[in-house]
Design a protein around this nucleic acid. Sequence first.
DNA 1: GCCAACGTTGGC
DNA 2: GCCAACGTTGGC
Length: 158
Amino acid sequence: MAARAKYWLIKSEPDVFSFDDLWRAKGKTTPWDGVRNYQARNFMRDGMRVGDGILYYHSSCKAPGVAGIARVASAAYPDPTQFDSRDAHFDAKSEKQDPRWYVVDVQAVEKCPQFVPLERLRGEVRLGDMLILRRGNRLSITPVTAGEWGLVRGLGGL
DNA sequence: GCCAACGTTGGC
DNA sequence: GCCAACGTTGGC
């Protein structure tokens, strides 16, 4: 049986919520809400454990890349936004007794002294298998191997 | 703004 | 269960 992933990469649009936004909340935790993809949900609900490492990646922006390190700060719990009809992530088909969507809380740990641009990730041969680098990948949460974790941290100056 | 890739929806 | 249509993502 494959070992459980202990490292993850999460994507965020920095215009919406950047690593610096998370960094400023240091000490506090932030619910990673609004995820509406079943595969990503399964990673949160069934894979993530408190203390797991997170590469915080900026996507859909001028400078895509890894900006910092975060950690999983809670077990998965039902995403409250799915039940809020005024919220953009409201899901009328989700029932409280059987919630469809989950969140985990995340917390900033380290800011990369050097931002790691996507281009730099692509330039590293040993990161060739990283899911984020695969053509057409759109998953907002992906598992990362221990090797990839160490390499990316190194590229970020950590 | 473009467009390829992908997930979801809904008709049948 | 199939699959075309549609909406979204995300790099460029």
